[in-house]
Design a protein around this nucleic acid. Sequence first.
DNA 1: TGCGGATGATTGCGCCAACAACTGTCTACA
DNA 2: TGTAGACAGTTGTTGGCGCAATCATCCGCA
Lengths: 162, 162
Amino acid sequence: MELFDDPRLTAMGLFAEVYTGLADKTSAVFAEAGLSDVDFETLIRLARSPQQSLRMSDLAAQTSLSTSGITRVVDRLEREGLVTRQACATDRRASYAVITEAGTARLRQVIPRHLEEIEVWFTGLVPPDRLAEFLDTLRLIRDVVRPCATAGVTSRVDAARG
Amino acid sequence: MELFDDPRLTAMGLFAEVYTGLADKTSAVFAEAGLSDVDFETLIRLARSPQQSLRMSDLAAQTSLSTSGITRVVDRLEREGLVTRQACATDRRASYAVITEAGTARLRQVIPRHLEEIEVWFTGLVPPDRLAEFLDTLRLIRDVVRPCATAGVTSRVDAARG
DNA sequence: TGCGGATGATTGCGCCAACAACTGTCTACA
DNA sequence: TGTAGACAGTTGTTGGCGCAATCATCCGCA
């Protein structure tokens, strides 16, 4: 059946296979450090944000988890001391998740191994010029499929300024 | 913190964002037809296999779901009449999942819309020559991270011979 | 100032998938 | 031929996540 072997279908399937294959490798590294994929993504997004913190809903938007999902992720991470909740001074509905020292320490512990895995299974496999073009193509698609991937990037003082 | 902005990290993050962004688009199409992502992947893998069937464990290997996961997926699909279980003549432990007429009909119903989405959000965004190179790169990685993606591709008669 | 709708976060509920334990079957080897 | 261990598939249990409902708060507008 031709329809079932359409090149677009196989392209999409290939994409999925590669991504899930890579994710399997990296999540094994996270698991060694007692983190899930979601935990890691949450922590690193906090670490890279101004004041090492994000509003819960911005975290949700960035991770494409639901807000209820984020509530629970932060619950878990808070229980482990990797993250703290902080009330928002200007909006009493909102709260910030802030990564703690223990959180950044956990990241520093796990990232070197994570980078090794990425190198072995992804970036190191592809010649540099092709890798650059590959990433350009990814960015091209990203800008279309995920226009709001940068939710909450303005710092908290900027946001307070309005 | 330099470590948190390593280019390999951002490359991996970009990959993840693009994949999940695309998956969101396509799973909406599946949902309209009453299928989950997993349902669709299962059905199309069966449709493309010899005799439109695969052993449960081969299905598990191809989809990187656990065998118990496959059991339940096939349970659901069987309940909807899209798949049937068939005993294996040569190994009474094994059973085959076989896609039904209704199953292929469902695929034929959903694939055109699915292809449109892939075109709009992925293949249509990238100039043809760059797309070709992009896919080459994906294949390069795939062959390394997923060496056994072809579990069970030998047909049932071949398997019986061997 | 006061009110209605919008928004941020949390919680109850249900579904889905992994892990581990289990049953039945196969196979290698004595 | 008989047995031990491997293997295919299913089921009980557990934990994660999304959806919808809920509560508190904010904001636009009269």
